[in-house]
């Protein structure tokens, strides 16, 4: 039955958490939660499928190096975005839907530290999967005519690392504000992805997909759009594809992504400081 030695007041004194330690506590707790096969397995499977797809693509009789750039933007970054959607949404909704998010938010500095710590955990894992995808891409193109210049590959790696915080922050903010965050996030993910191709460049600035694509391509689209640039890439001599880096594209687009990340995190913190998000159950 009950433990007779236990007493309400005989508990260890909690140490005072400063802002950084509080974030790190929430980060480590969330990482431990996410590092379970049942949670991570589906995203590992998605990543593996995308890498296999990349290998398959390089074994086709293609001579256009632009194909891999296109493939990277359309499959690798989307797979990473979906992973971010799964991990960042779960970071808030698992507890919110179970009605216990409030218990965590009662802890010292939690309204700020919890979203930041959990975002960091989701970002680290999403980024790690993104880098695995990038590594798979690099391995896939090795020894083929589709091999890209190292500067292009480096920029692709940089893009996967920037995609993780941006997507995770936006999806985490959605999960703080919306009960059906997964559906809202998926809707937004699809819509935001379509904005740029549809020509809504102004609106597309608020979508990581737009900035990530520009980073991967390394150049702003010409008047005739993205397709022309991909065609230009294809016309370059095999294996000596010049890196089409437009000056300032790296800091400007990276800046946009970091700004989107910061705004999303602020919105998440504002929401959690004001009220505990309601659950769907």
């Amino acid at each position: 039955m009950a433990d007779a030695a236990w007493h309400f007041t005989h508990a260890p004194e909690p140490r005072r958490l400063d802002a950084l330690s509080a974030v790190l506590v929430h980060f480590s707790l969330q990482i431990r939660r996410l590092l379970r096969f049942r949670v991570l397995g589906v995203w590992l499977f998605v990543s593996a499928a995308v890498v296999l797809g990349g290998f398959g693509l390089t074994r086709l009789s293609l001579s256009d190096p632009g194909v891999m750039v296109k493939w990277f933007g359309q499959f690798v970054l989307r797979a990473e975005g979906l992973t971010a959607l799964g991990l960042a949404t779960a970071a808030i909704r698992v507890d919110a839907d179970a009605g216990v998010l409030g218990l965590f938010l009662l802890r010292p500095r939690a309204p700020t530290a919890l979203p930041l710590g959990r975002w960091l955990a989701a970002t680290v894992l999403t980024g790690a999967l993104g880098l695995l995808l990038w590594l798979g891409t690099v391995l896939a193109v090795q020894g083929t005519v589709l091999l890209m210049p190292s500067a292009q590959l480096a920029r692709m790696a940089w893009t996967t690392m920037l995609a993780a915080p941006a997507y995770c922050a936006i999806f985490l903010a959605f999960s703080c504000w919306f009960r059906n965050a997964a559906a809202v996030s998926l809707g937004w993910f699809t819509l935001a992805d379509l904005l740029s191709p549809m020509g809504s460049d102004w609106l597309a600035r608020f979508s990581p997909a737009h900035h990530l694509n520009l980073l991967v391509l390394g150049a702003y689209p010409s008047a005739s759009g993205l397709s022309k640039m991909v065609k230009d890439l294809a016309q370059m001599p095999q294996n000596t594809v010049a890196d089409p880096l437009t000056p300032w594209i790296l800091p400007i687009e990276s800046g946009w992504l970091l700004a989107l990340t910061a705004v999303a995190l602020v919105l998440a913190v504002v929401r959690l400081r004001r009220e505990v998000p309601a659950g769907t159950n």
Partner: peptide, 24 residues
């Protein structure tokens, strides 16, 4: 809180320990 839901995949000890860790 009211209601009988809890995060399904956490164990009982994990759940309580997580809250205690976040307390310091």
């Amino acid at each position: 809180p009211d209601g009988d839901d809890l995060p399904r995949r956490d164990t009982a000890l994990d759940f309580v320990a997580m809250l205690l860790q976040s307390a310091g």
